[in-house]
Design a protein around this nucleic acid. Structure first.
Length: 427
RNA sequence: GGAGGGUUGGCUGAGCGGGUUAAAGCAACAGUCUUGAAAACUGUCGGACCUCCGGGUCCCGUGGGUUCGAAUCCCACACCCUCCUCCA
């Protein structure tokens, strides 16, 4: 959410922001609606003032006759007030709905473009593995080693269902343990939040309105969060934080649910795109300062890069183009990991900053040095998702004999150097 | 799922239809006093929006309703507490 005063004063900026994000937004309709809103507000407030003044008189009226007369007068004021008030309510409803769809302004450094095809590579790291054999995909490798069962996954869950089994599970635990230690070592406070969240939290983080189709909703009208960002941002909603307590840095770990409603043709098989997964997520609240946001954004993205480097998996980082940004994002980096069998990079992480777009919706403020209340800035970045990370890990570390070498950093957690055969026979 | 109690400003807590645009206390901040501090005294002491910068409006869990007028009455919902039931 942007400040309506800012929107009014920067019509062209907001308009070109929408264009850059490929979002259809008619700024003039909003301004016209806001004019109407102000006009009605002034009218209603004037009548209310009149009413308040009359209330004093009625209360203090000496004779019953005066009293009756004043009440009769006020009845007329009331009906006029009700008419304006109803008009105002109706305008407010449209106004609020429209305000929730005003896009945040992308940073000038965000490249122009329509889709992820226009994202710009800013960095690449690691040597792509050279195999002396025909490399297999993660499905074949993991299934053969008894780590993954997709057939039973779809039997039980349906499309995009999976079972992780045996060393597949142990490998996830090794990654989680490594991630927990790695990110808490960088000063992030670990949090396991509720993944079932109230609708308000989905609005606050900007997943609603607009993302209705991609989120699971319960019969109680709650939502299953697609990321720990949602509940962790809600954690401090409606709070005034101490300036000295900033930045707040959290490393959330939660199940994540995504319907993938718009992705039916994509990634039909395997662990790239699933409805239910686990994810470590970095969430930061910092002071309301653009430079601090930019610096923190670079930091949290770098944290994830370092984590991937610790796993020794080749990656590249891209800066997302305008058309690939969400409503609230100012700028976003994606980290993409090399997937040998597909011979391409696949997204594993997304790091964004929002300025006060989310905190304005969630009412997260702090008192600055002058004692003034300000909306904090918010940022988040994937730390590591499972099981998607297994796709690249397993394919990059596969050996000619079908075994998988365990990355050095994971060996202490995994307790072995390789996964060589199924610990549980298929069948 | 059932029964009951509750939700007022940073905190405690009064108010239960009109003189309250919420009493009082605590905490906080500033000043007086003091070598300094404490105490005492004096003052300040929530937020949002609109503004012709005089001021005005709104906020007593949320949303509706009754009324000339609602923190106060009615309805719905949310959350918290206690007990019963169920349960990993």
């Amino acid at each position: 959410m942007l400040d309506i005063r800012f929107i009014r004063e920067n019509k062209d900026l907001v308009s070109s922001a929408a264009a850059k994000k490929r979002i259809d937004f008619k700024i003039d309709e909003l301004i016209a609606l806001d004019d109407k809103r102000r006009e009605l507000m002034a009218a209603v407030e004037k009548r209310r003032a009149e009413q308040n003044a009359a209330n004093q008189k009625i209360a203090a009226a000496g004779s019953p006759e005066d009293r009756t007369k004043l009440i009769a007068q006020m009845k007329e004021v009331k009906s006029a007030l009700e008419k304006d008030d109803e008009a105002l309510k109706s305008v407010m409803k449209d106004w609020q709905a429209m305000m929730l769809r005003v896009p945040n302004i992308p940073d000038v450094s965000v490249p122009d473009g329509a889709s992820d095809a226009d994202n710009v590579e800013t960095k690449s790291w690691g040597d792509k593995p050279e195999f002396g054999f025909e490399p297999k995909d993660h499905i074949e490798i993991m299934t053969a080693l008894g780590m993954l069962d997709l057939e039973r996954g779809s039997k039980v869950h349906g499309f995009r269902g999976y079972f992780l089994i045996g060393d597949g599970v142990k490998l996830c635990f090794a990654i989680w343990n490594h991630a927990l230690e790695f990110f808490s070592g960088k000063g992030f406070v670990p949090v396991m939040p509720p993944a079932i969240v109230r609708k308000l939290m989905m609005y606050g983080t900007g997943y609603l309105p607009g993302g209705e189709e991609d989120a699971y909703r319960t019969q109680d009208d709650d939502y299953l969060a697609g990321t720990a960002e949602v509940p962790i941002m809600g954690f401090h909603s409606d709070e005034v934080l101490e300036a000295e307590a900033l930045p707040k840095r959290y490393i959330g770990f939660s199940p994540s649910y995504r319907r993938e409603a718009g992705a039916h043709g994509k990634d039909m098989k395997g662990l790239i795109r699933v409805n239910e997964f686990q994810k470590f997520e970095q969430v930061v609240l910092c002071e309301a300062n653009h430079e601090t946001s930019v610096r923190t954004h670079e930091e949290i993205n770098r944290n994830t890069e370092e984590f991937i480097e610790s796993l020794g998996i080749p990656y590249r980082t891209v800066v997302n183009c305008g058309g690939d940004l969400g409503l609230g994002q100012v700028k976003k980096y994606d980290i993409e990991l090399w997937v040998p069998k597909e011979s391409k990079y696949r997204e594993i992480s997304s790091a964004s900053y929002f300025h006060d777009f989310q905190t304005r919706r969630l009412n997260i403020r702090y008192k600055d040095a002058d004692g003034k209340l300000k909306y904090a800035h918010s940022l988040n970045s994937t730390a590591i998702p499972t099981p998607r990370i297994l796709v690249s890990l397993v394919e990059n570390y596969q050996q000619a004999d079908g075994s998988i070498r365990i990355p050095d950093a994971l060996q202490p957690y995994f307790g072995a150097k390789t996964i060589a055969k199924a610990i549980q026979k298929k069948g």
